[in-house]
Amino acid sequence: MLTKRIIPCLDIKDGRTVKGVNFVDLRDAGDPVELASRYSDEGADELVFLDISATEQKRKTLANLVLKVAATLDIPFTVGGGIRSVEDAKILLRNGADKVTINSAAVQRPDLINELTNNFGSQCVVVAIDAKKVDESWIVHLVGGKVPTKIELKEWAREAETRGAGEILFTSMDHDGTKKGFANNALAELTEILNIPIIASGGAGNSQHFVDAFTKGRADAALAASVFHFGEIKLPQLKRILNEENIPTRTIL
């Protein structure tokens, strides 16, 4: 049976992980490769690397990092941050990334989705959507959730699917950082209208929140960052709980 995926997300700046990481026995908590292998050993099903640096050197540093990650990691990983063209994506995929994720650039120029899927296939293209509830409707926001658009979440998600996106990564800006659970109602609504996998993001605080994202939210995968980095949720324990709740989960020995 196809299992639900748990995806730790690593924020990267200038080739290093940025969010504080509380793994006492890591030699270098800022080394994305070491952190990634740790998550992989603990049973992460996939990883996401989001590059948040904005320097000129950025593209080169990220491409080098991807190569190092691919050399070490034997689970799939997605890379995002500042991808605006086929060329941007090509170097990351060529260096071993399995998928790329695009966000604001796709809203600003939706043809980017078609271009990427035509060149690399739908399976490589994750469209990330940041949205926030404004007057009872979910509105897409840009630049890490700072700038509102006039676009409604479901409308944009459907367009992304039609243009060839292989997956939707939906972050609720209302839930992100609250640790009060994922936006399960909105997730369930997306599942109703889409026929591609949906990754839930924003709001993870405990293991039950993941259970809810898969049952109430009917998500295919769930992503979180700080709860994993600070050891508030341990992957083996989370997997065990999901298993007990009869959620199909990949457990490793």
Partner: peptide, 26 residues
């Protein structure tokens, strides 16, 4: 959902390519 994306259990013939690999592996 299409594509299928993720880890699925594999039931195999336990020999050749699959020698030494647990039944119903992911």
């Amino acid at each position: 959902k299409v594509p299928q994306m993720g880890w699925n259990t594999v039931n195999h013939n336990a020999e050749g390519l699959f020698e030494g690999i647990t039944q119903d592996c992911y």
